[in-house]
Design a protein around this nucleic acid. Structure first.
Length: 272
DNA sequence: AGATTCGCCTGAGAGC
DNA sequence: TGCTCTCAGGCGAATC
């Protein structure tokens, strides 16, 4: 399930293949995504040159010479591949963006929670990007920031850091891992966590995301980079998906419970 | 305003 | 073998 490190891995994987390439053809086989693929997509992309890539949270951006941007979200099961044109289709290959060098960018998404949208050059911002919290690697994000925004909040700290309006990129896996490393129990009310602990947590969020990016992401079920390669961060997980297994730090069995409708894992001894 | 719940999807795995 | 059921989950929208 692509979170920020997986999206960044995909971005880095496709960038050398797509930047400076011109789009020759666009094929939309299935437009029913999280939001419909805009009918004018092909018309707006054909003939345009891709001048760069970017990422905002878990949104991947392809920058075009027209000033328009293609906005791609992988949802839960979305994948992007760089392939030779004519590469055999499989089920759920929804969108092809053919390039002028014989390759293509293929969007594949069984669960269709993803999105392929246009961000037109005359729109100062995209509706989906309004209100997003800071990037975890930006100067705007630190423990003081988390502490300030959390005062008076009764929601669990895990829900708080997973809220994209607070900070982007701390998805279920990485929120769990960051909280473990910071020794904070995920059920604790966000407003009850002290400043020093938020400073530690902010550092751990950055550490975990940075390490995961360096490892090419986490491959649990269906994630793979643009070249089909797996990530390796799953080998470094301390709590996620490890219910009943011994804590790597203290051997206490890892526990699972549901917080905000999501599976949450923690060590009852290391996290208070 | 903040907290909680819902809904969109399909594939994998379990149970019968 | 094949059916049914449950679960997974990003995140915006709706509701409390």
């Amino acid at each position: 399930m692509p979170e920020l490190p997986e999206v960044e891995t995909v971005r880095r994987g496709i960038t050398p293949h797509v930047v400076d390439r011109r789009i020759s053809r666009v094929l939309v086989r299935e437009s029913r995504m999280r939001w419909p693929v805009p009918p004018e997509l092909a018309e707006q992309l054909c003939g345009r040159r891709i001048v760069g890539t970017d990422r905002r949270g878990k949104y991947l951006l392809l920058l075009l010479d027209s000033g328009d941007r293609l906005l791609i979200h992988l949802g839960m099961s979305g994948r992007l591949f760089v392939l030779e044109q004519g590469f055999p289709l499989v089920k759920h290959d929804h969108v092809d963006i053919e390039l002028d060098d014989g390759q293509l960018l293929r969007f594949h998404d069984p669960r269709r929670f993803g999105a392929v949208l246009l961000w037109r050059h005359d729109e100062p911002t995209h509706p989906l990007l309004i209100g997003m919290g800071p990037e975890p690697f930006s100067d705007a994000f630190d423990g003081d920031y988390l502490h300030r925004l959390s005062r008076g909040r009764s929601a669990p700290v895990k829900s708080f850091v997973m809220d994209g309006r607070i900070v982007v990129g701390a998805g279920n896996i990485y929120a769990a891992e960051s909280l473990f490393r910071a020794g904070i129990r995920p059920t604790r009310a966000a407003g009850d966590v002290s400043l020093p602990r938020y400073r530690l947590l902010a550092r751990k969020i950055r550490d975990v995301l940075g390490e995961a990016i360096a490892q090419g992401g986490t491959t649990l079920r269906d994630f793979a980079g643009a070249d089909g390669a797996s990530g390796y961060f799953q080998q470094d997980l301390y709590v996620y998906g490890r219910e009943t297994l011994a804590c790597r730090n203290c051997s206490t069995p890892i526990r699972r419970l549901v917080i905000g409708q999501r599976s949450s894992f923690f060590c009852p001894r290391c996290q208070r």
